[in-house]
Every structure is written in C-alpha cells, then in structure tokens.
Design a protein around this nucleic acid. Structure first.
Lengths: 189, 189
DNA sequence: CACAGAATGTAACGAAAGGTAACACCGGGT
DNA sequence: ACCCGGTGTTACCTTTCGTTACATTCTGTG
C-alpha cells in the first residue's frame, strides 16, 4: 500500500467519523505507530485535519484549518484586524491585530511571511506592501493600537483625524522593540 | 508486449484500484523497475495519472475539495480567484487567490500540481500553462494582487488599463520570495 | 493534589525500498 | 552501415519506515 493511499483513507475516515485514533490506524494499515504519526503530521501540515493527542479530528469541526486564537494574547481572531503569520515549515499562527503580530514576529525568528487585514476594505495584505499606523487615537484591539492599510494614502487620511504615525513594517518593528517591550538589559544602544 | 499495451493496462489498473505500486507492475509485466518508472513518468506527463512515491494514483480527484477556506490566510474560498493545490498523495488544499497560492507552493514542497481560475472566463487553468499579472492596480482579494490568465494576451490587455507585470508561474514565485516574504538575514552566521 | 503506570509523541539511527542518471545493448527502420 | 527508440544494468542518492530510547500527556487511585 502506498503512503498516498493511507493519506486518502485517513481523510475518508475523518469525513465519515469526525475523528480517528492512532491505534485504530495502526491496526487498519498494519504499519508502525511512528508511521501513522508521520502521516497525521503531514496531513495536519496541509490543513486536511487537526492533530490531537492520540489521533486526529476534522479540521472544519475544530474551527478551521488553524487555531483561531491569537498566539500572543489568546483572544479570538477573525475580526477586522486579524493577521496570519507563516512559519518555516508551513505552520501558521494567528494574531488578533498588528500590535500582537509585531510582537510575535519579533519573538519568532522563523516567521517567513505574514498577512494583515486592510483596516478599510478588509482584504489581506502582505505586510511588506502595507503601511501601518502606529498609536492612533482609537482602540480597536490591543493597545497601543496598530492599524494596517493597503494604501499609504488611506493611512495618511485616517491619521488626519485620528493621529498616529505612519510606518512601514520594518519601522513599526523597530518601534516595537524600542517602546513596547520591556528592556531587561539596559545595555541597548 | 508493447510499451503502449503496458500504458493501457496501467491506466486500467488505476481505474480499478485507484492506485498502483511500481513493485506490482514489475511483477505483472516482467520488466525492470526502470521501465515501469519511465512508463509512469510518461503517463504522468500526459496527465493520465499522478505520480507518487512508490507508484501512481488516479489523476482525477475523487473527494470534493476539503476545507473551503484558504490554507494561507483563512478567508473563504470559492470566489473568482480560487486556486486548488494538489499535494502528493492526492490530498487537496484551497487558496483564495494566486497571491496565497504562490506563497503556499513556496512553503509546501509536496505540491505536485495546482489549478488557478482564469480571471476573465473563470475556467480552471494549470498554473504551468497560465500567465500571471503581478501587482496590478486593483484589489480583488489579497494584496499585492496576483491575477491568473489562461491567455498571455488577455493578461497583456488587462495590464494596459490596470498595470502590473506579466509573469510565468516560476517568475511570480521568484517575485514572491523577493518581495512578500520577510528577510531574516541580519548579521547572524 | 500527588503519584504511578499506561498510552502517546518525538528524535535519532539504520535498513530497505524507490528514484534517477549514465551507459550499454538490441532490434527495426532507413 | 548507421541512426534511433526502447530496454536493462549499474551505481548512487533520496525517501520511507521500523526500531529504540526517552519525553510528554493522559488517567485512575489514593
């Protein structure tokens, strides 16, 4: 039997029953526990299922491909300010807003890319192409507020009414390092 | 036995069982492993089957698309820009638009093929045969916008009004690596 | 709550199987 | 005689998988 056949069967079983047990799969396929674990990790990696202790569950039932909670502060994501971070190896994580997103990228060296939601239109924007409005006079999610705009012009107009500083992602990150994190050493330049 | 006879029989076997093993085919036809591999590569080349490690599987997808959410950014798929990625083993995943599709293919080494929707007509196009318009001056889904066109001419005409750069899939991927992902270079060794 | 034991997850290693490039051989056609 | 496509052989590399050992999580008992 091909590994690919196992993959298909596992997804079928989850469709039928909602979940599968590692021990059942070991019996069904006659392969080792390790192999089943590897299969499930692979399928979880491409979002076909959600890995749980002892087996796997339907990805849709568990609230969709990924956990829908901010990796930084734990609040539910999915609002107007959500961010998705892409880690090395294909795993993803969610941030509730660019404020948390900034902190996460600073902490996790393996973040390869990230998308943030345009605050006006809601479309997802690659952070390298976006403009961020840091510390405007509104509270949407976490404080200090950081908002994402696809168009620098939109951010500019918004700031006329609400203040804040326009920054690129890199600038905003430098700002996070300087102002939002606690300096433990004091040896910084 | 002619090579053509083997081809026919291999396709038959896949129709019957969903997949075939190289080792089984070696036994059935009494030819070398190398010859079977060449057969499978040939049949995969003309789209008769999907090559997987140790054998081959049906190219036509049985199950309907799994999660209806973009594996990259989590938004609902199914719009005019949807993409379907095929992973080794026959499992599929969805991307909301070529922007996310590009990033996913960069991250997932096991993507064997992908289809994107032509932005004009809506038909699904194999990404290798399509032309992509990168960063035109419109926002349809994620930003920077990447649109897919079956005909390079369509992409060219569209770009006259909306700008953007025409690219093959490979070129677009290189562009993603350069402009959409975070560079974590620093001074580390 | 602590604890022990069972079940499960994970990392590392080696064996086996599979993929592939290079070359030689064969037979049919020109 | 020559070319050319199909095939087998060989050698080498990659992938897959089981085993082992150990870490982690779960579960029942007191």
């Amino acid at each position: 039997m091909l590994a690919a056949d196992r993959y298909q069967r596992i997804v079928e079983l989850i469709d039928e029953n909602g979940s599968v047990l590692v021990s059942d799969l070991v019996a069904e396929f006659g392969v080792s526990r390790m192999t089943i674990n590897r299969d499930l990790d692979h399928l979880a990696g491409i979002g076909s299922l959600t890995r749980v202790h002892g087996g796997a569950m339907s990805a849709v039932e568990t609230g969709d491909p990924r956990s829908r909670h901010c990796l930084m502060c734990g609040t539910e994501t999915g609002g107007r300010t959500a961010m998705t971070l892409f880690h090395e190896g294909g795993t993803q994580s969610q941030a509730c807003c660019p404020h948390c997103g900034l902190m996460l990228v600073s902490e996790h060296a393996d973040v390869t890319a990230a998308l943030a939601q345009d605050f006006i239109g809601g479309q997802m924007v690659s952070i390298r192409a976006a403009t961020f409005l840091v510390a405007p006079d509104v509270t949407v999610c976490c404080v200090p507020t950081v908002l994402c705009f696809e168009e620098r012009d939109d951010a500019d107009r918004f700031s006329r009414g609400f203040g804040g500083t326009l920054m690129t992602w890199e600038e905003a990150q430098a700002d996070v390092r300087d102002h939002m994190t606690l300096t433990k050493e004091g040896t910084e330049v």
